[in-house]
Amino acid sequence: MSNIQLDIWRGEWGLASIDLECLKVLTYMKFIGVPVKVHEANNPYFAPKGRLPVMRDGRHVLTTFEEVVDHLKSLHYSTDVHLNTNQAAEASAFTQYLREKLYPAYEYAWWVDEKNYTELTRPAYAKALRIPFNFYYPGKYQNVAKEMIDALYGENTDLKEIEKTIYQEAEKCLATLSDRLGESEYFFGNRPSSFDAIVFAYLAPLVKAPFPNSTLGNHVKGIPNLTRFVGRINQKNFRQVTDEYNRQNSKKQSTGTQADRAAANFPNQTRNKILAAIFAAFAMTGYAFASGMFQELKDFEHSRDYSEMFENEEDDN
């Protein structure tokens, strides 16, 4: 059991992983406390399906959340033992509901929305990849997402209409989730289930990733019990990741603030130096008048030794 290794996409924005499927598996494994070596992969080329996550346990190589859950269950690791038959059926139905209504919106927000893809998704995945794969895989994943949206809504349908429809369906799904959770800590009592890991993996990136077009993320953030749900799981299972992100973020803000202050003070410092120089010039001028320096210079102005005096001073120097 100590030889289990999990390859995932790296984390960002206080998330343990930027990827939905990786976050599902990682959260589930955190719930059950299975010992695992987590590796942030930067090259999915050798992964069985060219995607992450990949869990390896001896000769077992597993690439989907369902495969991981079943394998760990065979090793007597499971979070669902407390669910009765009705709850297990409900969890299964809700999982399918999320796949049909929330997943398309999730994929649209991450990969199809061009502004989000250009400014957030592609840079995040490119950062996680090594050259030259960072030029290939983000575009490949975007094409897969676009093909799925085209298959669901029609290739020639206006994207704005698709976005409106897809987000409306997602909002209904989120409202249903919120009603089901209520004020409970988890969806089925006071213990987490595999379904809680799935919901967290959907919601956490929408809450934490700084989308330029944040329609879906803002809707999630506007549902208090779902945002509290994300916060609780993050705090209990990924506190180290969150704390490290907060430290780094505070450090960046502090560095930025110091740089801003220096930039803001620069004109004032320059102004003060100029004023000081002007004041000094006036002071020296006043002193010169008071000591009769200008009069002395005037006396020498028409003297035959005037030029010679300065020549001699230059020679002395």
Rank of each mutant, 00 (worst) to 15 (best):
V54W: 00
Q142H: 02
K221L: 07
E100R: 11
E119R: 07
H302K: 12
N84G: 11
S184C: 15
A290E: 13
P44L: 06
L20D: 01
K140S: 06
G11E: 02
H219W: 07
L52D: 00
A204C: 08
N116E: 02
N143W: 00
Q235H: 15
T64S: 13
Y28E: 00
K146C: 11
N42P: 03
Y167A: 09
E171F: 12
V68Y: 00
L203S: 04
D299H: 12
A16H: 03
A204K: 06
L174F: 07
M29C: 06
Y106G: 02
I278C: 01
G33C: 01
E155P: 07
N246W: 03
R130F: 13
E114D: 14
D299T: 15
Q253A: 14
G286N: 09
K73I: 02
A280G: 05
S254A: 15
D7P: 00
Y77S: 04
E244I: 07
A16D: 04
L102I: 09
K140F: 03
W9P: 01
E114N: 13
N143Q: 15
N143F: 02
M29S: 02
V241L: 03
S307L: 12
L216I: 13
A89V: 03
L98Q: 05
R99C: 06
K164A: 15
S92N: 12
N234I: 01
N190G: 10
Y106W: 12
R122M: 13
A280H: 00
A283P: 01
N268R: 13
F294R: 04
F266D: 14
D7Y: 15
T227A: 10
Q168F: 08
R130S: 12
P35D: 09
Y186T: 08
T85I: 08
H39W: 04
M148V: 05
F229R: 05
R228S: 12
T118D: 12
F279I: 05
L6E: 00
I4H: 02
E313L: 14
A263Q: 12
D243Q: 07
P205M: 07
D243T: 06
R56G: 04
T227L: 03
T157N: 09
N265I: 03
R10M: 09
P192Q: 04
I278D: 04
I131Y: 15
R56D: 02
H302F: 08
D150N: 13
F187W: 10
P53W: 09
S92Y: 05
L72D: 04
A47Y: 03
V68L: 03
K24H: 06
Q142D: 02
R261P: 00
D299S: 14
G217V: 04
G222A: 15
L83E: 10
L23V: 02
A263I: 03
L216F: 05
S2T: 11
N234S: 15
R122L: 11
E313Y: 15
E90W: 08
K24C: 02
